[in-house]
Design a protein around this nucleic acid. Structure first.
Length: 564
RNA sequence: GGACCCGUGGCUUAGCCAGGAUAUAGCACCGGGCUUCUAACCCGGGGGUCGCGGGUUCGAAUCCCGCCGGGUCCGCCA
């Protein structure tokens, strides 16, 4: 809705500039528009024109101001403050926001792209840890944001079934017993044990390495015995991983296994196509692609000396598939993939394949250093969720002692999942973070329960008020009421920006601001005790806020509890 | 050694890509508010050389260069 106001302002400004004969350079935001504490939208375009027009910004602003049309739809007035042009919303815009926000179907944008978002894609060699969930949460939130923006999204998990790590899992399964604990944790135990066994002696190391090599080669060759073993281990691990993802409200729409692309011949085809670029050569027995002319120091190995394929080659085939089946394809990757993802994009460019948009997130480390599944050094997502849920249960029991245990468990579960998600998504992806139990278990303002609580309060008001179809939005004139309406209106701007820039943390910031605006309305504008007509108007606004909060929480993948 | 990311009050953090009018929040600290729609809330206060040094500009947290500190990567691993 804010976008409608903004496009009107843009139109007014452009017309005025044309009337004055002023030309602004092309570029993003060349009108210098910005939300500002001084106006609903402010333009600093006069400053930009000053050097070319050789006039003072104030004089330029004056001319533009005079030339701005007086026919407004959503604009109340345009004020000049020094060199700034300040645009204000009118009543009919605010009323339109209320009207629209009362309907449930007003929250979907106009983007129509088919998008593939690949996220999580953790190796099926153990449970997700607190580093992986940064990938999952960012990925799933982007999936939800893109859908909200109007896109058709396929959330994909790329399963690394051909790598050395999966061969090691099979070695582990051959030598050690799966102990019946949660599937992904059981797999991790045998995987860690196999890796540990390698450290015992040089002979053990050579033997186990040999076994793994043999598995890799036989799997690539299509050996049915090995295939059955790998498939069963991978599927087993994935059931556990899925279970964890579901706890956080995360689901994938489709899974693609690396081996698909080897079996289909795509990998061989890709290698052939790269050969035609003339940049490949056999060197030291391996088949390599020379990207030194594209800013990469090292050559990219496409095939091992023994003829088996590598992760990067299979990934090229997968990315070609994704490009062919989407308008946009998005990868969520940890910072350790920066270089290799750059190589991948360069190789795709050589193949004439559209490159993916890559979202890189920096690492989550432990106070003791970085995490490693292989070494068994990690805090699992399950452990984190269990701990947070326990804390949340204590909290809800303290606040709602009279409620049933079932109720308190349910609230705790949803508060915990929300808290974990919000904690991850609120920080910009390019900030490296240190995992901190104290912070993870904190439910204060900058966290999901704060927003869930605001939503529950709105629901509570609506539960206690009888349905009233008629309302007059013109009665909503208090400072906090207007601020709330404006904040609700901003939703489309935030979604549009987050969907284009692939930055989910913008939505987390918005969610907090929206909840704050609602809490002020709640504090200063009593709804149920207001005079009849004002009461109807405030009920309508409470409903708008409830819808906006619900939609925002939903887009963040956080359950909008109606009571807590 | 080379490449990329980060550096904002005691701690965590938004804003930076697209420069603009008093730099955003939370935690912690000090003080205030529940017989009133759920106080997981709200209000007030103190606290900032936006890592350092140059440059561009009418104007720099934001752009450019250099430096310092932290993270990540540079495998016939994934």
């Amino acid at each position: 809705m804010f976008l409608d106001f903004m496009s009107e302002v843009e139109g007014l400004l452009r017309d005025a500039l044309e009337r004055c004969g002023f030309k602004v350079e092309d570029g993003v935001n060349n009108l210098g528009l910005d939300v500002s504490p001084h106006a609903d939208l402010a333009s600093s375009v006069a400053f930009r024109l000053a050097p070319t027009l050789k006039k003072s910004p104030v004089l330029i602003a004056k001319e533009i101001h005079r030339a701005i049309s007086r026919e407004y739809k959503f604009v109340e007035k345009v004020e000049m403050t020094g060199p700034y042009l300040n645009f204000f919303m009118n009543r009919s815009f605010l009323n339109a926001v209320v009207d629209q926000a009362l309907a449930d179907n007003c929250w979907t944008g106009r983007m129509k792209d088919r998008v593939i978002v690949e996220h999580t894609s953790a190796n099926p060699d153990g449970p997700l840890h607190v580093g992986h969930i940064r990938n999952s949460v960012i990925g799933d939130t982007l999936v939800r944001i893109l859908r909200r923006a109007g896109c058709t999204v396929d959330a994909q998990y790329y399963v690394n079934d051909m790598g050395r790590q999966e061969a090691m899992v099979v070695v582990g399964c051959d030598h050690f017993q799966l102990d019946g604990s949660k599937a992904d944790h059981a797999i991790a135990k045998v995987y860690i044990a196999a890796n540990k066994a390698m450290e015992e002696s040089d002979e053990a190391k050579a033997m186990i390495r040999g076994e793994a090599d043999c598995i890799i080669q036989r799997y690539e060759a299509g050996d049915s015995e090995i295939e059955a073993k790998i498939k069963s281990a991978v599927n087993y691990a994935i059931t556990g991983i899925e279970e964890t993802l579901h706890r956080m409200n995360i689901r994938h729409d489709s899974y693609h296994w690396e081996s698909e692309f080897v079996r289909s011949g795509d990998v061989a085809e890709i290698v052939g196509l790269l050969e035609k670029t003339g940049l490949t050569e056999w060197e030291d027995g391996a088949f390599q692609l020379d990207l030194t002319g594209h800013g990469f120091e090292k050559k990219m190995v496409l095939k091992r000396a023994n003829g088996t394929s590598l992760y990067i080659t299979r990934d090229l085939a997968y990315h070609r598939y994704k490009s062919a089946n989407s308008d946009r394809s998005v990868d969520i990757l940890g910072a350790d993939h920066k270089l290799v993802s750059g190589q991948l994009r360069t190789a795709l460019r050589l193949l004439g394949v559209r490159e993916p948009e890559v979202v890189i997130f920096e690492f989550v480390s432990l106070p003791t250093g970085s995490m490693s599944t292989r070494k068994g050094k990690f805090i699992s997502a399950d452990e984190l969720l269990d701990e947070v849920e326990t804390r949340a249960f204590e909290e809800v029991s303290l606040r709602r002692p009279d409620e049933s245990e079932e109720f308190r468990r349910l609230v705790a579960k949803n508060v915990a999942a929300g808290a974990v998600r919000y904690d991850v998504v609120k920080v910009s992806a390019d900030k490296a973070t240190m995992f901190d139990w104290k912070q993870a278990l904190d439910f204060e303002k900058l966290s999901a329960p704060f927003i869930q609580y605001s939503h529950a309060r709105a629901c509570s008001i609506l539960r206690k008020s009888e349905a009233d179809e008629k309302y007059d939005a013109n009665l909503l004139v208090d400072e906090h009421e207007i601020a709330l309406i404006k904040k609700i209106a901003e939703f489309d701007l935030v979604i549009d920006r987050a969907a284009r820039e692939l930055k989910p943390h913008h939505l987390a910031t918005y969610a907090r601001e929206l909840a704050e605006s609602f809490n002020l309305f709640y504090r200063y504008s009593p709804v149920l005790d207001a005079a009849p007509e004002l009461k109807s108007a405030r009920i309508a606004l409470a409903k708008c806020a409830r819808n906006a909060l619900r939609t925002t929480l939903d887009t963040l993948g956080i359950v909008a509890l109606e009571t807590m």
